[in-house]
Design a protein around this nucleic acid. Sequence first.
DNA 1: GTAACCGGTTACCAAAGAGAAACTAGTATG
DNA 2: CATACTAGTTTCTCTTTGGTAACCGGTTAC
Lengths: 126, 126
Amino acid sequence: MAKINDNGVLREANCSEELMAMRDSLDVLGGKWKLMILRFLTNRTHQVIHFKKMQREIDGISAKMLSKELKELETNLLITRAEQNTKPATVVYAITEYGKSVLPVTETLVNWGLAHREKIIESLNK
Amino acid sequence: MAKINDNGVLREANCSEELMAMRDSLDVLGGKWKLMILRFLTNRTHQVIHFKKMQREIDGISAKMLSKELKELETNLLITRAEQNTKPATVVYAITEYGKSVLPVTETLVNWGLAHREKIIESLNK
DNA sequence: GTAACCGGTTACCAAAGAGAAACTAGTATG
DNA sequence: CATACTAGTTTCTCTTTGGTAACCGGTTAC
């Protein structure tokens, strides 16, 4: 199903290549919070998002983890970090165009999670 | 973008509901190997897959981790485990219909991983 | 002056993740 | 009799993850 660019020629990826590609993705996007942060920033593209705001709105994340995950996302060019000359000093985080390319991943995860919850509730009612 | 079934009425999920759905998904599908195992079994639906075969073909996974992850996937009804009366005894693992519902997730991850690798190679050539 | 806000960092600690290697048990092959 | 295959489990160890809480400097409002 997945297509791979093999020296300019498009062909189907084999199973081993698919698994390697997933390993690449999971190395960058894996962990407890990265995909949730990316989804949050994607949903709030039109708003100005500060550190504290994210910490308040992403349920359960600590300052330590948020700080760590944001650094890694910035390193991988998925988000930008911009210090403002406001008082008190604030920092604006935003998703990059490249970060937006992760949207299909978070979309399928959101949809699967919603369906899974419905399935669990359904099976409890039996 | 994601639709939620709210007492029979379909409406759009809000940001908080989306993040909760992602948390649900990641609780079931997260970790280093689960999505890779599901992808592998999906690709090999037409083949008989034993424990050792998976361990050989999923690069880097140890018997301990494979055993642990398979148990959790079985608990969540994503795969089946069937002991055979062969000699030596073998066990056949297969993806369930419900497990196949995870395909869109692995598909987006495979595609993102392939694109990400292309992007990295491209940036190295500059 | 003191409390509260911002954006974090640091130290401490517990739990989980994960690899390596040894081991179990039954069967079969040479 | 020794080796190898099946499908794991167990033990040991190290590393990573992740939570709590204290703390930092600077600013502002009361």
